[in-house]
Amino acid sequence: MADLTLYTNPMSRGRIARWMVEETGQPYEAVILPFGPAMKAVEYRALNPMGKVPAVRHGDVVITECAAICAYLADTFPEARLAPPNNARGNYYRWLFFAAGPLEAAVSNRSLGFEVPDERRRMIGYGSFEDVMDTLEIAVTTNPFVAGQAFTAADVYVGSHIGWGLQFGSIDKRPAFVDYLERVTDRPAYRQAKKKDDEAMQEER
């Protein structure tokens, strides 16, 4: 049995975790949980009290939340070179958690039809959707990858958000975003993860 277990559903943010696990090159077991009772069962809530996927179990360690999963796996398997050296992690942390905070919040609110009134922008972390999109463009154009010259776990997370946003129209289709997405998804691990999730999705139907 693999020491690494991924709890996921192919129609969820679990796709981010699957891609990240594939990037590590480690053997793993994937447990596909259908939406509904299985995710809310006592057994699974012992791993993730939110009753949501993804979650990763590595030995006795359990990690939930996609940004945390990406950071944990990058640190745990340094041979995969998915995190910069400790003294060069400024942009790596900045953009990884920018995507987990302002980007996801702004896109989610826009998708739900919620617009922050101009006079209340200072009350919300991301300010405005337009500010977030402009900042995201800086993240993906300053260097080839968000942390610098090399692909990292931050690109898995940022790239996943941009990919979904472009697919569903919740992120502006700017040329910079399209070009960046092409760069970060041109990887064997991404293609393998996508193939496995697409196959699992067909089995679920």
Rank of each mutant, 00 (worst) to 15 (best):
A88I: 02
A176G: 08
W19F: 12
I162L: 02
F168H: 11
D179S: 14
Q26F: 04
S108E: 10
D198A: 01
E115L: 03
A88Q: 15
Y72F: 15
T142S: 09
R122S: 15
M123C: 04
A68H: 05
Y93P: 09
C70D: 11
R205I: 02
Y93I: 06
G113P: 06
F35T: 03
A80E: 11
G125M: 09
C70K: 08
F77H: 10
G25W: 02
R57Q: 14
E115P: 00
T135E: 13
P188F: 03
R94V: 03
A106Q: 06
G101L: 06
D172N: 10
A100M: 10
P78Q: 11
G36A: 04
R13I: 06
V61T: 15
W19I: 08
V156T: 15
G59W: 00
A41E: 12
E137D: 09
R89I: 03
F177M: 13
T76K: 13
P34F: 02
A46G: 09
F177L: 14
F168W: 14
D186L: 02
A17Q: 08
D198C: 00
T135H: 09
A41K: 04
G101D: 14
N86S: 06
T24C: 10
I138F: 07
I124V: 15
G90L: 14
R94G: 01
L4F: 06
L96Q: 08
A88E: 14
L47N: 01
S108P: 00
S12W: 03
Y180K: 07
R187P: 13
P188H: 05
P37R: 03
V184Y: 10
A2V: 04
V107P: 09
Y72G: 12
Y126H: 08
W164M: 13
G36C: 04
D134V: 03
Q26N: 05
G113S: 05
A74K: 10
V56T: 06
V140E: 06
G159P: 13
F35L: 03
E43L: 02
Y190Q: 05
K52V: 04
A55C: 12
I138D: 13
G90V: 12
W164H: 13
Q26G: 06
A88W: 04
N109I: 00
V158Y: 05
G25K: 04
V21A: 05
Q192A: 15
E29G: 08
N109P: 00
Y93R: 05
D172R: 15
A46P: 00
V62W: 01
L181V: 05
A74L: 07
S12G: 05
N48Q: 04
A80V: 08
C70N: 14
A41M: 02
G25M: 08
K40V: 00
T135D: 06
A88T: 01
R183K: 14
Y180M: 09
F77S: 07
D186T: 11
P10C: 02
D186K: 13
R183H: 10
A83E: 08
F177A: 07
G169S: 08
A55Q: 06
V146E: 07
L112F: 15
E65I: 07
A106W: 01
A46K: 08
A67I: 06
A154Y: 07
P117Q: 05
L33A: 04
A200E: 01
T76E: 13
G148F: 10
